[in-house]
Amino acid sequence: MTDAKSYWERYYAEKKFVDGKAPNSFLVDMLPRLQKGKVLDVAMGEGSNACYLAQKGFEVKGFDISKTAVERAKSLAKEMSLELDAQQADLDLYLMGLMEYDSIIMTYFRPGVTRYYSNIISALKQGGTLLVHSYSQQQMNEAIGRDEDYRNFYFSSNEILKNLSGMKILFYQEGLIDGKHIVQCLAQKPVEKDAAKLGLFDMHTKGHDKSKSKQLELAENLFKK
């Protein structure tokens, strides 16, 4: 069985900037609605989106499990004379600071565990924005087992909305775009002092994730003041 790191290393070894170096079109369209400042690119790949955001004045951090992809992202940033903090890391082990980012983006990546959403949302500042763009399950051409979930970036219908309850949805659509089945979402973290009452911080601590992390407890206490 191939693990996630080996799979994505092989993927990027075989495919170099297969879609070019241009940023994701949905990111470009939504740029005016992103909260400006510090942004995190989750599973950044070869860095085309991260470099685009750096070009537009964002302070950009990004990570990917593939060393090859991260090296290409750094090379692209250097080629464009941009500042980019790019790291090789697995989301399982990547530490996001509490309310550290103004915006977070995820393109062609689907969190396989519900607690990842809680971690991502807690890493957003009040009013921060989360952008998601990936394929829907209608685009799948093969069944992907749980042991290979790391290559499953296909969202089921309304899956993102269910995992972002408590967030303000600024834009959402799923359907055929340029001949492919796509899911797109832009959401905003509430700025109200009673954000915890909206269920923002405990929406994934029930069911699959029984215990709260210390980080989420601190966030709840902060917003209850």
Rank of each mutant, 00 (worst) to 15 (best):
N163P: 13
E174K: 03
L53G: 04
Y101S: 08
A69T: 06
L164W: 08
Y135K: 04
R33M: 02
V113S: 11
V191W: 01
V39M: 12
N158S: 00
L98I: 02
L186Q: 02
K214T: 14
Q215P: 01
E79K: 10
L98P: 00
K180L: 01
A4W: 05
A50F: 08
G97S: 08
S118G: 01
Y172I: 10
T68W: 06
I121S: 02
C185T: 01
L198H: 05
L164P: 11
D209E: 13
R151V: 00
L84T: 15
Y135W: 04
Y150Q: 13
P111N: 13
R10L: 03
Y154I: 10
F171I: 13
H208S: 14
L27F: 11
L76D: 10
S213Y: 07
Q173N: 12
P23I: 07
E148F: 07
G45L: 10
D29V: 06
G199Q: 06
E14F: 05
Y7N: 05
G179Q: 04
M140V: 12
I177H: 09
A54D: 10
K16W: 14
Q173I: 03
N141G: 03
K214Y: 14
K162V: 10
F63P: 07
L82Y: 14
A77P: 10
F58T: 09
K5E: 15
S157N: 03
S157A: 05
K5I: 14
T2G: 07
E217G: 12
W8Q: 04
L93I: 15
Y172G: 02
K15E: 02
I65L: 05
M80H: 10
A86H: 08
L53C: 05
A22S: 09
I120M: 03
L218N: 13
A123W: 10
L53I: 08
G47D: 13
A22C: 07
M1N: 13
A22E: 04
G112T: 07
D92T: 08
G20A: 00
A123Y: 03
T114C: 11
G97H: 05
V183C: 03
Q126V: 11
N221S: 04
S165L: 02
V42N: 14
A50P: 00
D64R: 02
I144N: 01
M44F: 09
G127S: 08
R151K: 00
K36S: 15
R115M: 07
K212C: 14
K210V: 15
E174R: 02
K38H: 00
I120V: 05
E220T: 12
G20D: 00
N141V: 06
I182G: 00
I169N: 05
Q137E: 09
S136K: 00
L31M: 05
Q188R: 11
S136G: 09
K61W: 15
D149R: 06
